[in-house]
């Protein structure tokens, strides 16, 4: 009993010390994360329009959220964001896995290849967006020349002014830029796999495909899921790429949520309404991330028990 009580006291002291150690980190998080989020939440339930100061800043409850949900342009923007996230994350994870496998198996000149693969990732997004814009803009662009030389199109395509075709440079640019990042994450996962497993498979006469499906894929899955989570969170917030490449056009056909929120906040100075949209994006991506992490956690547990 006494030993138990002393143990509890010790634990309590340790807990106090732990809180003390964590305080600076918690304080920093409160300052840079919790504070601004709380402020945004507060703004989102008020009518705050810089252009009309005579309206003051009255509490309007959920009016801003209601207006947002009744705005077709916002619903469309949410759809665009989802489509963009699904397309780019799928492309990047598949291509990233391929690239990682190549990097993993190519011993020679791995450093050079890895550096070359990382180059697109190191470029500023705006530069990437401009590069891809040039590649798809005008009748003499790289994209149109390629199509013409392959006899796939008799007329040059005005990529950026088609509601569907405008997505091609956006998705390709994102995939081109972020695949190396995904590949690096997956490569780290690949290098942790015990080579003995593959050796055993080979001795047992398993085909390379069978070994890939039964050994590589399940063991690299946690890295894949982490990479997909990172990319999905980034994709939901996509802004600069679209801003430079299409500006959300043609019409509003490629406008993602963040660009719409930026318009409401920075161009139209509707702080309350813009904050409501930002809160929506935040809550949705946070909830998505929580669910994803939970799923990943369960997978990890299942594997440990097995």
């Amino acid at each position: 009993m006494t030993r138990g009580r002393a143990f509890t006291a010790l634990r309590r002291a340790e807990a106090r010390a732990a809180w003390g150690f964590m305080a600076p980190a918690l304080g920093a998080m409160a300052l840079v994360a919790a504070g601004p989020i709380a402020w945004t939440a507060w703004e989102s339930v008020h009518l705050h329009d810089l252009r009309m100061p005579w309206l003051d800043r009255p509490f309007v409850g959920l009016d801003n959220y209601r207006e947002a949900l009744a705005t077709p342009r916002l619903i469309a923007a949410a759809g665009h964001t989802a489509v963009f996230a699904i397309l780019t994350v799928t492309l990047e994870v598949v291509a990233g896995l391929g690239l990682a496998l190549v990097l993993h198996h190519r011993r020679r000149a791995r450093g050079v290849v890895r550096a070359a693969a990382l180059l697109p990732w190191a470029l500023p997004t705006v530069v990437v967006a401009l590069l891809w814009r040039f590649a798809f803009e005008g009748p003499a662009s790289v994209a149109n020349m390629t199509l013409a030389s392959l006899n796939l199109a008799d007329q040059p395509v005005a990529w950026l002014s088609g509601a569907v075709t405008a997505w091609v440079p956006i998705v390709l640019a994102d995939a081109w830029r972020m695949t190396p990042f995904v590949a690096l994450l997956i490569l780290a996962g690949l290098q942790q796999i015990d080579p003995a497993l593959h050796e055993a498979a080979r001795l047992d006469g398993a085909s390379p495909w069978r070994a890939f499906c039964a050994i590589t894929l399940p063991l690299v899955a946690p890295a894949l899921l982490v990479a997909a989570l990172f990319r999905a969170l980034d994709a939901v917030r996509v802004f600069d790429l679209v801003y430079v490449l299409t500006g959300g056009g043609p019409g509003a056909a490629t406008e993602p949520l963040s660009l719409y929120a930026f318009d409401a906040l920075m161009r139209h100075l509707r702080f309350g309404y813009g904050s409501a949209i930002s809160m929506g994006v935040f809550v949705a991506s946070f909830a998505g991330a929580l669910v994803w992490i939970r799923l990943m956690g369960q997978r990890a547990l299942v594997r440990e028990e097995a």
């Binding site: 252009r51 002014s161 043609p250 019409g251 056909a253 318009d263 161009r267 509707r270």
Partner: peptide
């Protein structure tokens, strides 16, 4: 005072018509 927003509405719909959406 709400010109920028008025213009933004017009921009989107003009561009939708011009791109045949």
């Amino acid at each position: 005072p709400v010109y920028s927003e008025l213009s933004s509405i017009l921009q989107v719909h003009l561009h939708r018509a011009l791109t045949r959406q």
